[in-house]
Design a protein around this nucleic acid. Sequence first.
DNA 1: CCAATTTTGTTCTCACGTTCACAAACTCCT
DNA 2: AGGAGTTTGTGAACGTGAGAACAAAATTGG
Lengths: 224, 224
Amino acid sequence: MIPEATVARLPVYLRALTALADNGIRTCSSEDLASAAGVNSAKLRKDLSYLGSYGTRGVGYDVDYLRYQIAREIGVTQDWPVVIVGIGNLGHALANYSGFRSRGFRVVALLDADPALIGQTVAGVEVQPFDDLEEIVRTHDVAIGVIATPAFAAQDVADRMVAMGITSILNFAPAVLTVPEGVDVRKVDLSIELQILAYHEQRKAGGATQGAAAAAAATDGGAA
Amino acid sequence: MIPEATVARLPVYLRALTALADNGIRTCSSEDLASAAGVNSAKLRKDLSYLGSYGTRGVGYDVDYLRYQIAREIGVTQDWPVVIVGIGNLGHALANYSGFRSRGFRVVALLDADPALIGQTVAGVEVQPFDDLEEIVRTHDVAIGVIATPAFAAQDVADRMVAMGITSILNFAPAVLTVPEGVDVRKVDLSIELQILAYHEQRKAGGATQGAAAAAAATDGGAA
DNA sequence: CCAATTTTGTTCTCACGTTCACAAACTCCT
DNA sequence: AGGAGTTTGTGAACGTGAGAACAAAATTGG
Ligand SMILES: NC(=O)c1ccc[n+]([C@@H]2O[C@H](COP(=O)([O-])OP(=O)(O)OC[C@H]3O[C@@H](n4cnc5c(N)ncnc54)[C@H](O)[C@@H]3O)[C@@H](O)[C@H]2O)c1
Ligand SMILES: NC(=O)c1ccc[n+]([C@@H]2O[C@H](COP(=O)([O-])OP(=O)(O)OC[C@H]3O[C@@H](n4cnc5c(N)ncnc54)[C@H](O)[C@@H]3O)[C@@H](O)[C@H]2O)c1
């Protein structure tokens, strides 16, 4: 129903609305919100139109009302239990990330295969053996899993997650995951992002081969 | 010249080719590589055609040769110096990330505003005060900066980076950055990814309002 | 050397996403 | 009440990307 590109922007609007509300702003125009969210105002209005008609012509949008409507549409008015698998460098950072909790996601378990980690407390949650996955998923009705293991283990972890009933996976490991129909996978890959930046950087430098050129002769624009 | 969507996939092909090479495979068809990269083979061939004609009809692609060509096109045959600003939970994880080094990115400095962190060694690199940014950028010809500070500090850090000559920024803070023309910004936002998953999860559950429904009545497909 | 087979590179078509432009709908002021 | 001024919601034009289909080019076998 709602285009995928729009779905990906709704959380950005939500964040911008929260920032406006924190500043005591109660009403905003599509222009205001678009600027806060870093998008074109026409695109913003079209995106919002997929949710319904929550604005008032000549006036704009009620910040709190729109915020609630978007939150409801995304599904963050309810609490989502989440498990994190792989409590290494990245897993620790994720477990300590406060942005989880504040946006409706609750870390119900931290799992790892390394016996040395089991029993340690990270961010107030005890690390459990990976084999506890089944019980945790069943007990807490977990639908979302986060993979922060090395790449070689990622597919295996994903398979086990799917077998236990998890239907949404956020994957930080640099590996292509194969999952059955009906399971959503999103990947976050730092090194891909850096490589994309490097590509554009190389172009800016005029395709010079040696060293990182400092002079950025902006051939091709592309500010985000 | 090369479509943005293609640029974003080239690093994935590169990773897949490396995996094939590690398995001793010296030649592969577009079908093989596409499958390893998780894309359609027609799309793969079209993507590669933007780089040139590096395959042989009736045979396929030489793994090492193609790998070099893609690496050169992206720009990862050279070394890219990178600075990381904000050495908190996430900054620590990034500093310890081995995938940086192995893909041509070299962390030349870790910067933070917190005096308590200055002087500490993280992943073999000493944390320096943020004010050292100018000297570091000048000394190492740094073009790429990573922001891992809290959101409220992100725009300020970005401004200072741009003023020092950095032209590519990878931003982990949940904030919209405004930068001049010619500067590229890419953002990685964990909570946005989770919210997108939550949206689809809610749809799978039939839009039920209470709790996280376990029964995933796959109404709308969407496996990645 | 030539035909059969394989696999690339490319063309064509369709779907999706973005942006412009404007009528509809609301407020405010006189 | 009515007109002027705003701002939304959306139809239409445009651009980009995905995928099917096929001709061109290489190998292999006779
Ligand atoms: N550190 C970063 O900043 C960073 C950035 C981007 C991507 N990544 C990726 O994220 C992943 C984790 O990175 P990291 O630096 O935390 O690595 P890490 O080695 O520090 O941690 C990996 C953890 O996964 C555990 N593990 C291994 N196999 C497992 C299994 N089968 N089941 C459960 N747990 C298992 C290990 O015991 C370890 O604790 C890697 O794939 C890495 O490429 C990391
Ligand atoms: N921890 C995670 O897993 C995670 C995940 C996604 C996004 N993020 C985002 O990444 C950012 C960092 O997260 P974190 O958990 O590491 O936070 P943190 O609070 O642990 O670390 C932030 C660091 O930035 C430093 N800092 C603050 N202002 C600065 C400035 N002006 N200049 C230089 N350094 C400054 C602080 O001293 C601190 O060391 C946040 O914006 C967070 O929302 C974190």
